[in-house]
Every structure is written in C-alpha cells, then in structure tokens.
Design a protein around this nucleic acid. Sequence first.
DNA 1: ATATAGACGCAATATAATTGCGCGGGCGCG
DNA 2: CGCGCCCGCGCAATTATATTGCGTCTATAT
Lengths: 163, 163
Amino acid sequence: MQTETEPLVLDEIDRKILAELQEDGRMTNVELARRAGISPPPCLRRVRRLEEAGYIKGYHADTDGHKLGWQIAFFVIVGLESQKLSVLEAFEALVATWPEVRECHMIRGGGDFLLKLVARDAAHENQLTQRLTNAAHVARVQTLQTIRTSRALSGVPMDRLYG
Amino acid sequence: MQTETEPLVLDEIDRKILAELQEDGRMTNVELARRAGISPPPCLRRVRRLEEAGYIKGYHADTDGHKLGWQIAFFVIVGLESQKLSVLEAFEALVATWPEVRECHMIRGGGDFLLKLVARDAAHENQLTQRLTNAAHVARVQTLQTIRTSRALSGVPMDRLYG
DNA sequence: ATATAGACGCAATATAATTGCGCGGGCGCG
DNA sequence: CGCGCCCGCGCAATTATATTGCGTCTATAT
C-alpha cells in the first residue's frame, strides 16, 4: 500500500480484482476470490501485490457529505497572478491547510488551479471564496456551484486496460 | 449500505468511526474498535447502523489511474444550448454511458455541467472532447487539463460536525 | 423512586485471513 | 526435444476477525 515498486504485468484476474475492489473495497477476500475465480490464498496474495506495487493506493469509505452537515459542494477555478514555482507551491501549501478543500488540481500548465470544496452552508461557502479571493497572489476566482451530481465514480474504467 | 432510514444522532465515537473508515476503509473492526475506544461488537453495530442509515454509502479501493494506463485526467465545462429538463437529462444519460466520464456535476442552475474524465493518452482525450463537442445540444466545451493533483481527499472533513 | 430503552462488554461461534507446503504448467536452456 | 526451474495455484492448518446472544449498567421518562 506504500512500497511502490516496479510496474507489474496484470492479467485478467488482477483487473477483475481491481474492478471489484474499486466497486466494493470492503468485500471479504473469500468473496473476492470467488468472483475472481480463484481460491482465497492466491487472491489475497494478488491483492497484497497490487497494494505493494501501488496499483491500489488505499481504501476509503464513501460518506454522505450532505447528511454529515456539508450541504454544499462546489468547484473553484483560481487564477494566480504569477506562474513562479514558489508562488504555485505556496498556494498549494495554503489550501492544503484548509479542511474544506478536498481536491486541488493544477491546470493548464501553471497559474491556474481547480479546487473542489465543501461548505456547511451558503455563508460558509461565501467565507471560503472570500478567503480564496484574499489569498496571496490570487488574481481571479470563479465559482462553479454544484447543483446536483448525477455521476461520481471512483477510480478508472477497468475494462480494456493495459496494466 | 442502502436502506436509507431516518437521520441519526451521531456522537463523538460515530464521527471517529467515520473519520477512520474514510481514511482506511479496509481497517478491521477490531482495529477500528480500538481506535474508537470501544469493544468490537458495539463498534460493528455502529458501523452497520451508519451504513444502513446511509452515512456510509460504500467503500472503494483507490486505484492508481496512471499506472493502469489512464495517463490523463481532465475536467470539462460543458454548456448546453437549452435549459430544458429533457435536454439536461438527455445529456446526463448520454455521458453516463461513457466509461471515461467519472463525474458529472450540474452547475450554475442548469445548462452547464462540469465533468471529470480520464483518457488513455492525448489522442484519446481529443477524441473525447470531440465527442462532447458533437453531442446533441452542446454549445460550448472548455477543457481544463490536470497537470498535477496536489490534493485528492475523499469524503468530507470529520471535525466539528453536526451529524 | 422505578420502569424502560439503549449501548456496552464478555463469551461463544462462525467466518475470514494468513501461512506453510507440495503440485503442476509454462518457459528457457542445454 | 527433454530437463529443470520458477511461478502461481489450491489444500490444510493456524490465527485472527466478524458476528451473535445475553446479562449488566446508565440515563431518561414516568
């Protein structure tokens, strides 16, 4: 789950395992083995191998943000007034300290970021966008409020892979 | 994990459980109980309760898309030329059939979507944006290519919650 | 003050995870 | 073409975890 070694050659069974764990990460190894068509011991060894090689980076419960009091999810495109590495890194370091920032993607080669945030309510959202606007070297802030999410798949398609 | 009942009153232990499972969804119940400060049986009962009430929607392995042959991740802002419900739903239904579309968020009240996609390579990415551009009722397509992702947290902050 | 519901932990049982090991197939070398 | 080696499999045994039943305790409402 951390060791990060060489690239592996994955076969059909490995892909099936990845697909199943992407879908249900808490499935028992017995059930996983059944679905993969092999017995539990080699199945577990494959899972461990995938974890150690970094193909599986971790496992996460998918929680209901709305029920947990995070009524709002939104994206923000942030433009910085500089493309200097130090400025970019400072911005990343800053937002990394905000728990409401769940994702931070650098886009278009530098100077711009796409963030995904959550907020407890509209006031909280405004506070967050204000904080972003006032942050050092921030030139532009465009908010994309999520009205509804019709699809939110984790991971990648597991059909026709290279691996 | 699906039954969806009433809202629950969550206490500190429930929040700890959610936080831990959000962080490591495959943790054993014994370890989870240890961290939550209670014994395994009530811990498991709490987890089941959280699943059944929909606070935990599922568990997913976090796979390495890059290693699995999906070199490119990108976002696309799609503007439709109509805000008619039938058009919006048709668009959602269309992209729901594309495995490369991992997320689809309706933004700004209608007519616009933010999608997250993955592609095997640049040619594949171009093909996807072309397909989007040519889709019915699509007026505008803006691509936000991800250069690097400095943060990608799952779920929501689990501090100071309501529940 | 007392009955009641809810949550806990212990103990027992059922399952699952993990390890050791021998077997058999595929591959490369002689 | 045959021989051995390496790898991955499955079985069987062991250890650990998940799950269930149940008696107890505490906070709450009557």
